[in-house]
Amino acid sequence: MIDDNQIFLEVKDHSVSGEQFKLVLDKYEDILETSPQPSAENLPKYYQSEDYISHTDTKRNLLERVYHLIRKRALKNKLSLINSFQPEEKTLLDVGCGTGDFLKTAKEDGWRVSGIEPNPEAREIANSKTKSSVFDVPKLSEFNANSFDVITLWHVLEHLPNLEEHLEIFKHLLKPNGHLVIAVPNYKSYDAEYYQSFWAAYDVPRHLWHFSQNGIKQLFEGFGFVCKKTVPMPFDSFYVSLLSEKYKKGFMNPFMAFWVGLRSNLKAKRSGEYSSLIYVFKKA
């Protein structure tokens, strides 16, 4: 039974089912949990949409073209970030790798790459780009301990059930002093505040968890990770606002989306509360 004091917001699944969900305060401070969470058997049906962009390379409309334009720029930034760690062996695991563009970019730069992707169509595309380095979810528990210098989750952590179990696995797989790179939406950003239940980055029930800076840092510190730095993702505010406008008004309204995204970034320059943030954690 959920106490009314636990309910932060009620949000609709705008993209697939039309069902209503609650965002409730989790046991960790400042982390919200989607309630009810779909069972493992039912969760895949909420991903059955041609509009789920990370599972396709199509560019059919303005939203998809914007997504791929941002992704192209983001790939360079992501590669620069992991190269800054200067690991000797350059072993990388990308969890939830989608269609494999980041793995392909890293491999071309000399990284030894592996990926995890549950969607079979996206996994097939990723394997065509990386020459069979991408596996289904069960493989995650089969890698040897201390296998990777870097593990990345680009907008993936919020999708994972059994959150604590996954953090233990990542800690097990990372080498001593290895880096865990997490990118997640920030529900304390201005665009989240502006759009409220229409904020596209809530994306219930595919997003099972919703993080603030304080919440995610406390969570990972409890599992023996140290947050070395956070990196803003300023382009996300524009993309998320564009999709949020569609949910709120029935059309994308790019001018309003640009204005809200810009205001979000300008406010975040002072507050640090960007629409999405990358967290660099180091295994203690």
Rank of each mutant, 00 (worst) to 15 (best):
R73P: 03
R123T: 06
K78M: 04
V16P: 14
W259Q: 09
H166L: 11
F85D: 04
E19C: 13
G224L: 04
P205S: 15
K269L: 14
F251G: 10
G98A: 13
I82S: 05
Y195K: 00
L103R: 06
C97P: 00
G215T: 01
S244P: 01
L173Y: 03
S276E: 05
E165F: 14
N253Y: 02
P120H: 10
G110A: 06
R206I: 07
R73D: 00
S241F: 08
D30N: 08
V156E: 04
K246Q: 11
K107P: 04
K76M: 04
L167A: 11
H207A: 09
D101L: 05
L173P: 02
K248M: 14
S264M: 06
E121F: 01
V231N: 00
I53R: 03
I125Q: 00
F255D: 12
D101G: 05
R60W: 07
L157V: 15
G115D: 13
R123L: 07
E19H: 09
E33S: 12
H166R: 14
V231A: 08
L157M: 14
Q218K: 11
M1G: 10
K72N: 13
I2Q: 07
K45L: 13
F102L: 04
E245S: 12
S197W: 10
E19I: 09
S141P: 04
E168F: 11
L262D: 04
A183R: 09
V113F: 08
A126K: 04
Q86H: 04
L262E: 09
L219G: 01
V231M: 06
H155Y: 13
N77G: 12
S275Y: 02
G18A: 02
N127F: 12
A200P: 03
V113D: 03
C97R: 03
V11A: 06
K246H: 08
Q196F: 08
L79M: 11
G115L: 05
N146F: 10
A106H: 06
G250E: 15
E165V: 15
S264I: 07
N144V: 06
K104V: 00
P232I: 02
K129E: 02
I2H: 00
A268D: 01
N119K: 02
S132A: 13
K139P: 05
A192N: 02
C97A: 05
F143D: 06
Q218R: 03
G115H: 05
G178S: 12
R60C: 11
M256A: 12
V240C: 09
W199F: 14
Q213A: 03
P161C: 02
A40R: 11
L163F: 12
H210C: 12
S241A: 12
H55L: 11
Y52Q: 10
I31L: 10
F225R: 01
W154S: 09
K107G: 06
R263K: 14
K248E: 15
L69H: 12
P44N: 12
L160S: 15
V231D: 02
F258A: 15
K228R: 08
V137W: 05
E245I: 08
S39V: 12
R206S: 10
E29V: 11
E29N: 00
L9R: 13
F148V: 01
W111Q: 00
E164R: 15
A200V: 02
H172S: 14
R71M: 05
T130A: 00
